[in-house]
Design a protein around this nucleic acid. Structure first.
Length: 430
RNA sequence: UCCACAGUAGCUCAGUGGUAGAGCAACCGGCUGUUAACCGGUAGGUCGUAGGUUCGACCCCUACCUGUGGAGCCA
């Protein structure tokens, strides 16, 4: 095995050689401190002139930020080092000299950092967020595999629009019009009838002119769909899943969360069950809080959701929204026809909606009526309607936005830091 | 699409109707335990673009462009 910084504790008092980049450097006339980064971690290399000689010492002193090197040295335990280890450097071989690296160890603005996203990813903070993203994905697969779900991949190029209202990216499919997927849900419903419990993980595209810290044009969703599962059980799966992911991140990303300065006590508390509040009660609550502008039948805006979420220290389900503000496929409540069996899960600390889910209509006639009332083409949705003609069963599912979830767990302000190369309004590069 | 704020050195920012400033980065020098190291020096500018007002505009006015935050919409 090659030596890496993350496992260098195994090589104490040994002389090792490994590849690294120079993250930063401090030096005096006779000693130099190199902050070395190899992708797995950081370690400080100490170069003492008396020990390495003039040639290697001046090579160390003239190293530029982000130059790549092979470094040889002895690993020692040192209490002055944050990681506990230091490298007493014996030799340096320059692989490539970096000239005028743009991201200096000083503050930078958002636009500059985004223009340099390909380099910004090297920073301690960004690397930590990427590791947390990886852990959320890993824990997602683990949770669903442990619970009998099958991963199914819905198409990215689609001919129809799952939710007619939002903006779609249009493209050509040879002679036909096609759209980039903004949800795999309808396909996952078909898959649930084939495999029972399924989940997807893939990119989705929304051509919305949204420009907030919660929005990306291209983002990744996890979309489970479950046959024979109704409203209540759907919520239970969601709270179990979200708790599992948060607890996994707490356990496996301790270093990363610390590097980000995340208050982990807030995450430790994220354990199922989560509180539920009905849309009706949420409206009453908002009126009590002084939101006079909202009436029954209106959808909530971000300020409303935040006000509700602030009353809880866990994610909160807002359930049973009015039929009129929700998509055509949601199952109406059997006790009252004006609300549907849906729930949004709102994350704490202002991170907004991380899950939208519902029980789906399984009755053929009802779904057909809904499609017609929403002005959608029966021809386009023929295959989707057919699922209700051949052994239809009650079923439910939900979609979790990966980047919002990672932003919440990491405690970063903006979702753009939770995806390697964010696609934002007016930003397609790098 | 709408609202608010911003655009000055590579970066982060200050600045006054009368000849353009700092810190960091770069370069040169100093310093044996630094933690965004420190100290001295050098170099670096069509002040977003186009008009206008003025004896004179980086500064005031208009339009546009770009960015940031937000609204709507949504994960």
């Amino acid at each position: 095995m090659i030596t890496t910084i993350s496992t260098i504790g195994k090589n104490v008092n040994e002389t090792v050689r490994f590849g690294a980049w120079l993250a930063n450097k401090r030096s005096s006339g006779k000693i130099a401190f190199l902050q070395l980064r190899d992708g797995t971690g950081f370690i400080q290399g100490v170069v003492v002139k008396e020990e390495v000689g003039d040639e290697i010492f001046s090579k160390a002193k003239s190293l530029t930020q982000e130059s790549s090197i092979y470094v040889t040295g002895t690993v020692i335990v040192d209490e002055r080092s944050p990681s506990g280890y230091e490298l007493q450097v014996k030799d340096i071989e320059i692989i490539h000299e970096s000239i005028d690296y743009p991201i200096t160890p000083k503050e930078h603005g958002t636009e500059f950092l985004m223009d340099n996203r390909h380099l910004w990813l090297r920073s301690r903070r960004q690397a930590a967020v990427m590791r947390i993203r990886n852990e959320v994905i890993r824990a997602t697969y683990e949770f669903f595999n442990n619970n009998g779900f099958v991963k199914v991949d819905p198409p990215i190029l689609t001919g129809s629009a799952p939710e007619g209202t939002t903006e779609l990216f249009a493209t050509k499919y040879f002679e036909e019009d096609a759209y980039l997927s903004q949800s795999g849900q309808l396909y996952m419903e078909a898959a649930a009838f084939a495999l029972g419990k399924v989940f997807s993980f893939g990119p989705t595209f929304r051509a919305e002119k949204s420009k907030t810290r919660r929005h990306l044009i291209e983002f990744w969703m996890i979309e489970p769909e479950m046959a024979f599962v109704e409203f209540e059980e759907n919520l239970e799966v969601q709270e179990q899943y979200v708790s599992y992911v948060v607890q996994s991140a707490l356990k496996n990303c301790e270093k990363e969360l610390k590097a980000l300065g995340r208050d982990t006590s807030k995450l430790a508390n994220i354990v199922a069950p989560f509180p539920r509040i009905s849309y009706d009660d949420a409206i009453k609550f908002l009126h009590e809080k002084g939101f006079d502008d909202i009436v029954w039948g209106d959808d909530f805006g971000a300020p409303h959701e935040t006000a509700i979420a602030e009353s809880y220290d866990k994610p909160v389900f807002i359930t049973k929204y009015p039929k009129g503000i929700k998509p055509f496929y949601m199952q109406p409540d059997s006790e009252r026809d004006d609300v549907v069996l849906c729930a949004d899960l709102i994350a704490p600390e202002g991170y907004g909606e991380i899950i939208g889910g519902s029980q789906r209509i399984h009755d053929f006639e009802l779904l057909k009526t809904q499609l017609e009332q929403h002005g959608l083409s029966l021809e386009t949705y023929k295959w989707y309607l057919e699922l209700r003609q051949y052994g239809s069963v009650p079923h439910s599912g939900f979609g979790l936005g990966l980047e919002r979830t990672v932003a919440w767990i990491s405690g970063v302000e903006h979702v753009r830091e939770t995806i390697p190369f964010p696609r934002l309004l007016n930003r397609l590069y790098p």
